[in-house]
Each structure stands twice: as structure tokens, then as C-alpha cells.
Computed example of a mutant assay.
Amino acid sequence: MAEAARHPEPRHDNEPRYGNRPTMKDVAARAGVGLKTVSRVVNSESGVTPDTERRVRTAIEALGFRRNDSARVLRKGRTASIGLVLEDLADPFYGPLSRAVEEVARAHGALLINGSSAEDPERERELVLALCARRVDGLIVIPAGNDHRYLEPEMKAGVATVFVDRPAGRIDADTVLSDSFGGAREGVAHLIAHGHRRIGFIGDQARIHTAGERLRGYHAAMADAGTAVDDSWVSLGSTEPGRVRAAVERMLSGPEPVTALFTGNNRVTVTAVRVLAERERPTALVGFDDIELADLLSITVVSQDAAAVGRTAAEHLFRRLDGADHSPARVELPTRLVPRGSGELPPA
């Protein structure tokens, strides 16, 4: 053993290194280029020929080199992390939104930390401030509350913040939304175009911005058609299945039941579909938000692009982190009506 230790086997140039972590200098020596060239390749900067870039990347792979982000982060005064505060992790709308944010964050070399406010304003505040205490560089928030003045000190200290799906309450901040008003107006107008006049609206809680905007779109479409809305045709409240089921059954009973329903979000739509499936009389339905298997169930929906919302919000956030300095912006993305059959049923 002692003899072997005094005369170790020679290491060939193409063998990976172990022990000390390889550095940019090691990569530069192996590729036969300067240190600045390696830095440009590692940081995806321009000014390197394709052949040189291939040599550098081959050296990186052979040596097992990994960029040391900690030093770069310290130089920029950042932690290379952002926080995403969702309303409800179980809501299918937030899956593609979260993935899109994560993809943009990854492209910028940042880690995404997310959590759910569970639709509780106090929980939202606790979660946001906990993320700030961990020095995230920026925040993307789907607000549960309507007063965000607690965030003003953090934003003044440099925490870039973008609100999504709903605007911030009582502060000016960047916001990315879907066109809830326009989408609902189009969805209800679609039912009107197929002969319906008695149209029920079942939505989320009135305090929620999107619920209010979709109700406003419903009223606008009905007014456009010259149709007065009976109070019994509108129901706002919890998306809990029992509450929604009761609202649907009430609207479909009596001597003059509604002939169509417009449901204000995906959770309401799912319950409404179940109730309608139990009944013999067909009732037209258009839902706001797409739902799983909606194409197989022939459910007409107003679709919003959750991934585009998340991507737009994240790109806006990183522009702020890169120094963009302008007044708070409001970006409203269009929705799309997807006819599949349920919204095209005529009045029974």
C-alpha cells in the first residue's frame, strides 16, 4: 500500500477531476482559451464563436464544472430567489401559472419559493412577510386581502413586487390580470345569441376582484340585450360544493327557471356540471376558466391563459429586478371563448 501511494497511477487528461472543485481557470486551460471567454460562455454572453463555445462547453462537461452562483449573487446584492404567493395550491388554475413562473425564474438563475394563503388575508400577510424576512429578491402575489400597505416598506427597500389575477389593495403596484369583465361579457352574450334571456350567474365571493368583474360583465351583456336581471338569477358566495349546488337547484326550480347558467370560475363550473348531469331537462352552460375533461364533456368555457399570466408576471418582475424604473403598470391579457356544445343548447 505504501509503495502504491508513493507511485500513483498517472491521471489522463480526459479523466474527470475529483477533490477540489474545478474552477473557470481549469476550464480555460483545458479548452485553450482565456478566462474571459469562459466567463462569457458560462453567463451566456455574446462575443464567442460557435467553435470556441463548443470547446468550452466540452471542457465544462468533462471537468464537471458548476458555476458558483453565491459569489455572483453577493456582487449583485441578491439572493437569487423569488416568492410566489398563491390563493389555493389545489386550484387547477394555479398549476400552469406556477410552472410558468418557475420556468422564467430558472432562466434567470433564480429559485422559486411558493406557498398558499388559503384565501385568508392574514395568512397572506404572514407568508409575504416571512418571504421578505428570508430576503427574496421579488414577489409575485395573488392577493387574498384588499389592503397591502404592509408591503410598502419592503417595496421601498427594493423587493420587486407584481400582483397577479387581482390588483393590490390601497397601494400602487405592477399588476397582471386576465380580462374578467370582457370574458364574462362575451360568454353571456354567447348564451344570449343562442336564444337565452333567463340566464343565471353563480360566482365567487363579492369581495374578490375577479368575481366582481365577471358579475359586471354579466350585467353588461344582459343590458346590451335589453334584458332586465331578476335578483334571483344572481348568486355570489363560497365555491363550496354545497353552496353552489343549492344555488343551481334554486335557479332551476319554480315556474320560470333559468334556461342557462354562467358560472364564475372552474370550481363553480365543476359543481354545476354535476348538478346538471342529474337532471333530465337540458340547461345551457358557459363556465369561466377551462376545466379538466371539459372537451370530452362538451363544456363551453371562457378560457384564460394561466401560463401566459404567470410568464408575463415573472418577466415583468425580472425587468424590475434588472433596473426597469417606471410607474406601476397594469397588464390585462385577453380571454378566449371556446364553444364545445353546452353553451350552444337552445332554451328548453
Score class of each variant (00 low, 15 high):
Ala4Leu: 14
Glu9Ser: 13
Glu15His: 13
Thr23Gly: 04
Ala28Leu: 04
Ala29Asp: 15
Arg30Trp: 10
Lys36Ile: 14
Val41Glu: 09
Thr49Leu: 05
Pro50Phe: 13
Glu53His: 03
Ala62Val: 06
Gly64Arg: 07
Arg75Tyr: 03
Ala80Met: 04
Ser81His: 03
Val85Arg: 02
Glu87Ile: 08
Tyr94His: 10
Pro96Arg: 13
Val104Cys: 08
Glu119Tyr: 06
Glu119Gln: 06
Glu124Thr: 02
Val136Cys: 01
Arg149Gln: 15
Glu154Met: 07
Thr161Pro: 01
Pro167Ser: 08
Arg170Tyr: 14
Arg170Cys: 15
Ile171His: 03
Val176Tyr: 00
Phe181His: 13
Phe181Tyr: 09
Glu186Val: 10
Val188Glu: 05
Val188Asn: 05
Ile192Val: 13
Gly195Phe: 06
Arg197Asp: 13
Phe201Lys: 04
Asp204Lys: 09
Gln205Arg: 15
His209Met: 06
Thr210Ile: 10
Ala211Trp: 08
Leu215Gly: 12
Ala221Trp: 05
Thr227Ala: 14
Ala228His: 15
Asp231Ser: 06
Val234His: 09
Arg243His: 15
Arg243Gln: 15
Val244His: 08
Val248Pro: 03
Pro257Ala: 03
Ala260Asp: 06
Ala260Asn: 04
Leu261Tyr: 03
Arg267Tyr: 15
Thr269Ile: 06
Glu280Thr: 13
Pro282Ser: 12
Pro282Glu: 14
Phe288Met: 07
Asp290Trp: 05
Asp290Asn: 15
Asp290Tyr: 05
Ile291Ala: 09
Leu297Val: 05
Thr300Ala: 09
Val302Tyr: 08
Asp305Phe: 11
Arg311Asn: 07
Ala313Phe: 03
His316Thr: 01
Phe318Ile: 00
Arg319Ile: 00
Arg319Cys: 00
Val331Ala: 00
Arg336Asp: 10
Glu344Asp: 12
